[in-house]
Nucleic acid binder design. Sequence first.
DNA 1: AGTATTTGACTGAATATTCAGTCAGTATGA
DNA 2: TCATACTGACTGAATATTCAGTCAAATACT
Lengths: 202, 202
Amino acid sequence: MTRRPDSDEARTRIVAAAVRCLARHGVRGLRMADIGREAGVSSGLLYYHFANRDGLLAATLAHVNDTAAAGRARAAGDGRDALIDNLVDEISDDPEVRDHAAAWHEINASAVFDSALAAHLRATTADWQRRIADGLMQTAGKTAPPNRQAADAQAAIATALVDGLSQRWLTGRLSTDEARALLRRALIRQFGGDAAGSTPCN
Amino acid sequence: MTRRPDSDEARTRIVAAAVRCLARHGVRGLRMADIGREAGVSSGLLYYHFANRDGLLAATLAHVNDTAAAGRARAAGDGRDALIDNLVDEISDDPEVRDHAAAWHEINASAVFDSALAAHLRATTADWQRRIADGLMQTAGKTAPPNRQAADAQAAIATALVDGLSQRWLTGRLSTDEARALLRRALIRQFGGDAAGSTPCN
DNA sequence: AGTATTTGACTGAATATTCAGTCAGTATGA
DNA sequence: TCATACTGACTGAATATTCAGTCAAATACT
């Protein structure tokens, strides 16, 4: 706790500011000067901590990615209903949730043209899906024989649904309530009772 | 092939070039000079045909939209299976389909921070969903009472699913075959009605 | 202890770069 | 000759990047 200005702390503040800017203006609207202002730091310091705009962007995206993973990890609750609630809560009026969703979508969009980013994203998504598939396996026993492959497929579909609907929501094509209701409905049907994975359709 | 009054042809070439650039580099990587080069035309001509970058972008978006709508309209076939086939074909190794999907996703991503774009997108999406809901209504009679509201919801979910999975595919998190299989599976479950019996797994 | 020296986070004005948009001029067909 | 289609060098504003210099804390020396 020395008084000396702490390099790490500033770096962290910069990345946090960049996340906020990213959520508000997108990758294309991300200005170094804005980030500096938002972080309460000079523009020069950005270059002290990061090689250039791309470097800062990469760090920012990595941070969002990590935050996503962490947030999903802490989400608790047993059973299929809790699982669905967690997923539905990825869409919410909470500004923090919205910012996070916007940033996440920016990463997704950028990853189409950035293979390094795509690799990170692959890992995070795999993690997220694994967590859901695990949840499904634990609850499946009650209604159907556990089937890992089916659970994986359902998890993949579920996360894609979350992303697809949350994009509709972020672009104002669906209200928060509509998006949540549709997502819940879709998830219930996907995870739903009909002897789950026992029907391998392919 | 008259030599001079080529205005329309050049305009078309420019838009086509813009679509290609959009699919390759995203909105954020879209440079007027690049579009000119790609179209084999001077940068000045872009401004002869379009008011500014936004105007060209709007025309490009409209073109992608029209192409999408046209493609979807021509896709014929009755019944739920044909409907599902059409949706699954939004994911394909055909380079044209891939470019189109990439452009579509860029538009989606940009629309989060651009309300004008969002308005366009809202209209196109509504169109797409209506078409699907119509299809569902026509086939629903056989297994369930037609219910417009339910059909609308299913259509919204279906298109979100297409977008969500196709993003996974564009970022290399799913192969073409995986994405198509998952999408088909999800749609069957979604449309299948919980009157599950009618689920032909093809 | 006190004082000199070094370190490194940090600033912001100066400079470089990028890119949408312009314009003066050329070529072509009617 | 007139209008239209077109060119590409150029401009300027917005942005990214650099760098000489400041200052507080850490360290070394007496």
